[in-house]
Design a protein around this nucleic acid. Structure first.
Lengths: 113, 113
DNA sequence: ATAACTGAATGAGTGCCATAATACAGTAGG
DNA sequence: CCTACTGTATTATGGCACTCATTCAGTTAT
C-alpha cells in the first residue's frame, strides 16, 4: 500500500485535507479539537497537533488560542491549488514513469476522455 | 518530491527494476556486483545488497555465491506483471483520489487517447 | 596456494516517529 | 471567581527503519 507506510501525522493531514476539500468544513468553520480528533482517530493529541501545524504553517488554518482551530478564508481554493501543484510536480512524473515501465496504457485506467 | 523521501535501498531497487525492464540486462545476464553498483551509485554496498535482496525474495534474481547475481529466466515478464499489479492495486487508487480532490482532469495529463 | 573477486552476516550507530505525563496559557459560560 | 474547554510547550522514553564498518564465506583464475 501507499498510505500504510506513511507516518501517522501525515495520514492525519491527508484526512483533514480531504475533509476540507470535500466541504465537510466550510471556511470559517471550527475544526475538531486536538483532543477530540485524537480520540476519534485513536491517535495521540500531540500527533494531531503536529498534523494541524502543517496547515497553520501555510496559513490555511487560523488558530484562536483557547477557542479552537478554524478554516481560514480562501483556504479551500488555496489548498486545492497547493494539492494540484504538488501532484503535477512531485507525484505525476513518478506515476507516469511507473506506468511506462509496467506497460500500462492510460486507457486501461479511464472510462471517459 | 517523492523519490527524495524514499529510502536509498528502494531507490536503488527502482533503478535496477527500470534497467531490467528496459532490457539493459537480459535474462541470464550478470548484474553489477554489489560493490561495483555501490561505487557507481555512491551508495553503501550493504544498501545495494538490500535492494538486490528484494529481487531474490521474488525469485527474479538468481544468486551464485562467490560469482555474482544473475537475472532469472522469465524475470522480465514476471517483473512487469508484478509492477503492473502493484500499480493497479496500491498506487492508482490513491493517485485517482488525489486527482479528484485536487480537481485535476485526466486530459490535463495526457496528450493521446 | 594465493590473490582478487563475488555475496552475506553480525552488530552498532543514527535519526525520525510516536507516545506519555505534566504543566502552562488563553477563552467562554455559569 | 471558577470550571471546563481550547491550543501549546517541555521532557523523557521506546521503537523502528535506515545506514554502515567490519568480518566472514564462497568461487575463480593464475
Amino acid at each position: 500500500m501507499r498510505n500504510e507506510n506513511k507516518p501517522v501525522y501525515l495520514k492525519l493531514r491527508d484526512i483533514i485535507a480531504a475533509a476540507i476539500l470535500d466541504g465537510d468544513f466550510s471556511e470559517g468553520a471550527m475544526l475538531p479539537s486536538v483532543r477530540a480528533f485524537a480520540a476519534q482517530q485513536g491517535a495521540n493529541p500531540l500527533t494531531v497537533a503536529k498534523a494541524y501545524q502543517l496547515f497553520q504553517d501555510d496559513g490555511m488554518v487560523q488558530v484562536k488560542r483557547g477557542v479552537g482551530l478554524f478554516v481560514a478564508r480562501g483556504a479551500v481554493a488555496k489548498l486545492r491549488k497547493s494539492e494540484k501543484q504538488n501532484f503535477l510536480k512531485n507525484v505525476w512524473p513518478d506515476v507516469k514513469a511507473q506506468m511506462d515501465r509496467a506497460g500500462i496504457r492510460p486507457s486501461e485506467l479511464l472510462e471517459d476522455c
